[in-house]
Design a protein around this nucleic acid. Structure first.
Lengths: 388, 388
DNA sequence: GGGGCTTTGTTCTTGACACATACAAAAGTG
DNA sequence: CACTTTTGTATGTGTCAAGAACAAAGCCCC
């Protein structure tokens, strides 16, 4: 019945996920003999991937030794590269940042400039965190455009001149000889929010409503990238006002009427001093009725698209992030209202729609989580064990 | 690198999928020693799951022995239970029907009547095919409503009085002591079409446009059922004329304006003698311009919803089935036109949209495929090998 | 056309690994 | 303070896959 948690890496996963905390738990969950578990755990202890953390209360016999995943057995490097600015972090193995920084270098500066900057900053951050380059176990990177995850290259990115086909993975592996994982920034944020919710929902959507609109899908417990790495691109669904032409050239795109950029423009044409999304957020927070009305209308339109997606995918959780999610309860309430009204009863039976927990940290959290999941996946741990 | 194809069942899968045809292939693909492969293959040969089928041409050395999956090592029973009629089949282990039958018993006759009928007919079909009950390895069943796949029960089905919570799995396992797999009929058809296309696309959509409209999603190589088993329910997406109220009670549902039932009704109100979907199909085939126009309009509306889904999921293949798919090229052409125009360029780069290959046989093919996949999954074969 | 060479498949030995069993440790229980 | 329960550890044993040697059966080239 139990899958293949029979491997050393499988045991580590059970501890990491909190499914098991003692050797006896592991034996019970996996069906392995206690002796075998002991042997495996010993190997993980000598590798410092697990540590013993005192005893649990006895349940009538010898008290069990608590096992803990050693979140300080190494670090990962996380990069959330955005169109206009980027964030970097050195994170522990629970994806918690130990040192972070922010840079204003635009992605349009090109891959060499941006990645060299990142490498330099990573070195400083490692020093800040008191870690050596040899402590780095993996690197996770998010890019603001389509990415071919398997090769770690950007593909035909609309807003990233000079990046098309650039081998991000190779460039970073040159500076740090560890696995490099690259993905779309929204996918990364989805992973981050999912991780923050303990990976509890197998079918999970993250919707980012910032200047543009995008989404990351976790389906069946895995990030869904689609045949061309283009999955989740909901900003260009034709659902809005067909008379508005989107920056992508097509009419009626969702983000052309409901994205933060579109709202800023619309309010500006009403005489407000709104150039970017955050200006809109400020207006809403200040209680401006025009801005509130605009944001609510955007919420309804986004909700309408989400209602369709909910009917199709029947997810368990939806998390709304991005700048516009910070406008307060009204925005989320409009989305919820439309989704619950327009989706089928069965598909909303268990559905929860909530605001992002991580906010701006979703990207670096997700990048770190992606790196960790790779470096400490059962198969990776097994290989390491096989060598040692 | 290689996953866990190291097991006996894993080898069988490689042969079944055509990835390997000789022992040497298996050794190369799995990384197992030739001796180990031989041993495993021997076990599968004595179980009659594999058979040797002559030699392949030499490539400079001893010619390899060809291995073939023994499609006659047993049979599966397949049931495609529809609202008004049902189809049953005894199929070989490639999901090819050996004997089929059709019954007019409506699903509303209730679970006991329908399933007893099915059991009786299965016995006759087995006799027709010259097989014994002991040859049956598994049973696959499709039901016209939401199904909790893990338990094999129908859940709150709108058109199946008496079926809510009924344990289909238990009822059939009572008559045939083998694994019983139950799923939604559209999911089953999706599996069937996917199987017929050699499971080549990891992200695959099947759209059924009959009296109602539904879809089955294969994402990441697995059927996507969603949190409540409600995934794929695109018929009740609100995309159509909001003044039309659907049989589900909500306004503007896709199937309320573009389903076969809706078209029949609309044409009837224009004076045509169209009671059911097949009447519409006949009119279209006869070249009636009103009917053609109606079907084309339905194609556009369905295409518009599909365009959204393509943006979200970025599938590789879409197959259109159901009665309306038989109206000829025009219907499909309208769908294609709208999808390619309204989806992003990246997400349609590799997309193929085509008509069903299997037609009416999609259901029983998929039911058989589901049964086979379960009975001959690596883990199942391993368990059997462990016992024997 | 015959002696290599290559490729495929089998037999047998060896070694690793997981299990069971017995044992030790450390608590609760009466 | 014996006894039980629960947890963790050491040791022998059996299973199973790898590896090497061997056998089979075709190419290839002088």
């Amino acid at each position: 019945m139990a899958v293949s948690s029979h491997t050393p890496g499988g045991l580590l996963k059970l501890i990491r996920d909190g499914a098991a905390a003692t050797r006896a738990d592991l034996a019970g969950l996996t069906g392995l003999a206690r002796s075998t578990v002991s042997q495996r755990v010993d190997a993980l202890l000598t590798d410092r991937l697990l540590i013993e953390a005192g005893e649990a209360p006895s349940s009538g016999g010898r008290p069990p030794t608590l096992l803990k995943f050693n979140q300080d057995a190494g670090v990962v490097l996380a990069a959330d590269l955005g169109a206009s600015h980027s964030r970097l972090a050195v994170s522990n193995l629970r994806a918690e940042p130990l040192a972070t920084c922010r840079g204003q270098l635009p992605i349009s500066a090109g891959p060499e400039a941006v990645l060299s900057w990142a490498v330099d900053e990573f070195a400083k951050l490692l020093a800040d965190a008191g870690k050596a380059a040899s402590d780095v176990k993996a690197i996770g990177v998010g890019l603001p455009g389509p990415v071919e995850h398997s090769t770690g290259r950007a593909i035909s990115p609309p807003i990233m001149p000079g990046w098309d086909g650039y081998d991000v993975k190779a460039r970073l592996a040159e500076s740090f000889d560890v696995p490099v994982l690259v993905d779309n920034d929204v996918n990364i944020m989805a992973l981050g929010e999912w991780w923050a919710s303990s990976n509890s929902a197998d079918d999970f959507l993250y919707i980012k409503v910032g200047t543009g609109i995008g989404s990351g899908l976790i389906l069946g417990g895995h990030l869904h990238r689609g045949a061309d790495g283009a999955a989740g691109d909901i900003g260009h669904i034709q659902a809005g006002d067909p008379s508005v032409v989107c920056r992508c050239g097509n009419p009626g795109c969702l983000e052309a009427s409901s994205g933060g950029g579109a709202l800023a423009q619309a309010l500006a044409s009403q005489g407000y001093d709104t150039a970017v999304t955050s200006d809109v957020v400020q207006l809403v927070r200040a209680g401006n009725p025009d801005a509130i009305r605009a944001v609510q209308e955007a919420g309804r339109e986004i909700g309408s698209v989400l209602a369709t997606i909910v009917n199709v995918l029947n997810p368990l959780d939806i998390v709304i992030g991005g700048d516009l999610a910070d406008t307060g309860a009204e925005f989320l309430a409009r989305i919820r209202e439309v989704v619950y009204r327009r989706s089928t009863a069965l598909s909303t039976r268990q559905l929860s729609i909530r605001a992002s927990e991580l906010g701006d940290n979703a990207g670096i959290t997700g990048a770190a989580a992606m790196a960790i999941e790779h470096a400490f996946s059962p198969s990776a741990v097994n290989e390491r064990a096989g060598v040692g």
